[in-house]
Design a binder for these strands. Structure first.
Length: 127
DNA sequence: AGAGCCCCTG
DNA sequence: CAGGGGCTCT
């Protein structure tokens, strides 16, 4: 819809889906990693977990998705990231990760929080 | 059957 | 990132 100059056949589209799927996987891997680290660090309350622009988790994500700081990360992203981190923390804290499919419940919550494409990306002269 | 996503791997 | 197996849903 937003890249009218490109032809999207089946292969290109599936590759694109794969690409974004990898992006999402990286996101969740980081979330689990930092949630586990928080537990190791002795955090025992989700209220102690936040995601701000100057925190380690945000930096890890930003380096991956927005290395050159081409755009300003939407505030909503931080909110959802924080919710995700807390979801992982709570699940691990309650030892729910013993269930092989423990992440599915988290995915179901977080995928509903997906945001629409930022308006600036829809601009034809964005590139 | 095919799309989409997850998981694991290289 | 890409590949490929597996599962869900249409």
């Amino acid at each position: 819809m937003f890249f009218l100059c490109s032809q999207f056949n089946r292969c290109i589209t599936s590759q694109l889906i794969k690409w974004f799927s990898n992006f999402r996987e990286f996101y969740y891997i980081q979330m689990e990693k930092f949630a586990r680290q928080a537990i190791v660090d002795g955090v025992n309350d989700v209220k102690g977990l936040s995601v701000a622009r100057d925190c380690e988790l945000f930096r890890a994500l930003n380096v991956h998705y927005n290395k050159a700081n081409d755009f300003q990360v939407p505030e909503r992203f931080l909110e959802v990231a924080e919710i995700t981190l807390q979801e992982f923390f709570t699940a691990i804290f309650l030892a729910k990760d013993s269930d092989p499919s423990w992440k599915k419940a988290i995915y179901k919550v977080i995928c509903k929080l997906d945001s629409d494409i930022p308006q600036e990306f829809k601009s034809s002269n964005y590139l």
